[in-house]
């Protein structure tokens, strides 16, 4: 044990310098050339700077609403609900979200509501919704903004992000980008 203690301490120190120091600084230096200089992707609109990947809470009737969140989209932290699929309290909460949605979107039938709109995301910061979740909100937004529904549908279609390389993974809509485009219509 004794003959190994000193080499262990010295090797720990050298490894620290290398794997915590040099490696980290190298990546930090390279990341300066990445979008946002290593601060994450940024998006500038109307003088405000937004974090593209940190989802925002949209809850007004005249915006495409984002998903429910366990942390109210405050990216100071992050979190999911961690509710189990059979938890009665959780199922009642989902039911009440459905009822609220139907109240804000008269004329929509239950079977048109996709699951992502009434369930909380894993991070609480999900920047996306599914294309179906955007389409089901079109009628409400068209009415609130007095815009033609077909025009809005085209907007949603144009903002539907394709699967990776056209082949892999789900289609999705970036809520912030879609809402910025919505504000720019007039």
């Amino acid at each position: 044990m004794k003959s190994h203690l000193l080499p262990a301490i010295r090797l720990t120190f050298v490894s620290l310098v290398f794997f915590s120091g040099i490696y980290t600084l190298a990546i930090w230096g390279i990341a300066w050339f990445a979008p946002g200089h290593g601060n994450g992707k940024l998006l500038e609109y109307n003088g405000s700077i937004y974090y593209t990947n940190a989802g925002q809470n949209f809850y007004s009737d005249h915006y495409f609403n984002s998903r429910p969140s366990a942390v109210s989209y405050n990216a100071a932290g992050s979190g999911g609900s961690n509710k189990g699929p059979s938890n009665p309290e959780y199922l009642a909460l989902v039911q009440s979200r459905i009822d609220t949605f139907l109240a804000h979107n008269p004329g929509v039938s239950m079977s048109e509501i996709p699951a992502d709109l009434v369930t909380a995301s894993g991070s609480g910061l999900d920047p996306h919704i599914s294309p179906a979740a955007a389409m089901v909100q079109v009628a409400r937004i068209a009415k609130a903004r007095n815009i033609d529904e077909t025009h809005l549908r085209e907007l949603v279609a144009a903002h539907t992000e394709k699967p990776l390389w056209g082949f892999f993974g789900p289609k999705r809509i970036h809520v912030l980008k879609l809402n910025i485009a919505l504000d720019q219509i007039k």
Partner: peptide, 18 residues
């Protein structure tokens, strides 16, 4: 409850992964 079933179980999941 009568929702559209095609996305699967989305509680605790991110739309970009599915």
């Amino acid at each position: 409850m009568g929702l559209a079933p095609n996305l699967g179980n989305m509680e605790g999941k991110e739309v970009r992964f599915g």
